[in-house]
Design a protein around this nucleic acid. Sequence first.
DNA 1: CATACGGCTTGATCCACATCAAAGCTGACA
DNA 2: TGTCAGCTTTGATGTGGATCAAGCCGTATG
Lengths: 251, 251
Amino acid sequence: MSKASIISDNLVSQECGDCPIRHRAVCARCEQDELDRLEEIKYYRTFEAGQTVIWSGDRMDFVASVVTGIASLTQTMEDGRRQMVGLLLPSDFIGRPGRNTAAYDVTAITDVVMCCFRKKPFEEMMLRTPRISQRLLEMTLDELDAAREWMLLLGRKTAREKIASLIAIIARRDAELRLRSAGNDLTFELPLTREAMADYLGLTLETVSRQISALKRDGIILLEGKRQVTIPDFDRLIEEAGDDADGGLLS
Amino acid sequence: MSKASIISDNLVSQECGDCPIRHRAVCARCEQDELDRLEEIKYYRTFEAGQTVIWSGDRMDFVASVVTGIASLTQTMEDGRRQMVGLLLPSDFIGRPGRNTAAYDVTAITDVVMCCFRKKPFEEMMLRTPRISQRLLEMTLDELDAAREWMLLLGRKTAREKIASLIAIIARRDAELRLRSAGNDLTFELPLTREAMADYLGLTLETVSRQISALKRDGIILLEGKRQVTIPDFDRLIEEAGDDADGGLLS
DNA sequence: CATACGGCTTGATCCACATCAAAGCTGACA
DNA sequence: TGTCAGCTTTGATGTGGATCAAGCCGTATG
């Protein structure tokens, strides 16, 4: 199953309750009693846009899954240089079994609802329910692929290609969420500030702004205000992104 | 258990046979019959330095684990720009359950021996033996951490910091393999050509060469020939690398 | 022995992106 | 209504690393 269909299934499927972990890690293939056990140990937390979910190095006694909203994983050097290393979208998972401190800063980019599980009981569940670790393995492998795709972008792409890649990824995700076919004339809202894009792409916010202006000038994208983007010709955008293949998955 | 101890255990432990997958994925916690089942479906392949193990997009009907030698995972754009996205060291795993084409070019950097398992029986094993997927999950999470560490390097570090980081990582791994304490005055051989380092670090080979010369000039490293490196003061190297914390794991 | 070749170094020059600086836009709030 | 803060754009200038080019070293090859 592709990441694409996982995300859209997750948000669309009627039969799977409101909690992504239930759907992604367990639901489709688990027995009712396994689901019930998960229900018992789960709880919800909400965060406002901009709020920090957890700081790198902090004790982390839960694992969680994003229900709605977008959060970021960020690494920071002592001198303040920052690199976003992952975007957490609905159904994405944070925390890892067998570790009890956070490895990255996790920040809510939009308002976020998370479905949490205390780590101890979750780990016990994993031991008793092999399907959960199998499902987590699939998800982690998807994230690893996305991270490696991003390494190519960070190491070798030009600023223009980086911006085009990011917009293509967001557009693709947006199309999936809305169950559109990946046709032409996509319109959507950028969920990130210029600064957040810069953190993700390994650029400065000025360069991000300039390249977005350039793509607009060249007719690759249309802008309505600062954030609303329309893509008149998706193939042309992909060409700008320099992608050979699928354009990569979003982490 | 840290990646470090996994690697050194793997190579040093007397009780665990010659095959890393046996040790890393199963050995320590599995029953004898589970081990026996793995033995039945495994086989070895060897590759010479420079030889391609598999091309991105090729059909891949096995999973494997590096026994000896070093291999690389590389992505290439149509115009030839290349980015290494992972180094495979002894005990590292390639291939993923549930996918049957390779996502990256895999190339032997040194002579390599791999322990392979045909994918089909391996996947059946995984279903019957939960500990294997649990172990693979741990390993994959380690790789994901390493990839994210690398994203910070690719996105935000200077050329000098990148080189220092790479040398520190190789030095650390080397020290682990030889069971030295992480003391001073480490000496080891660089296993990579300047070009391979450039591919890994998102630089050109000329820049790699210049920065190595600069680190040598500044006394951060000592060079014997082109490849043999001595580190007189490890802390100073770490400082040059700009790392705040553990300096990252090697993928 | 001459020649070639792969890996490496070093120099000269160029340019993409960072940095520094100023100002525009929008929405919140007094 | 003013102003203030956060976000964004745009311009001017600087620079780190890419690119282009030449040559070195060690080793394989005829």
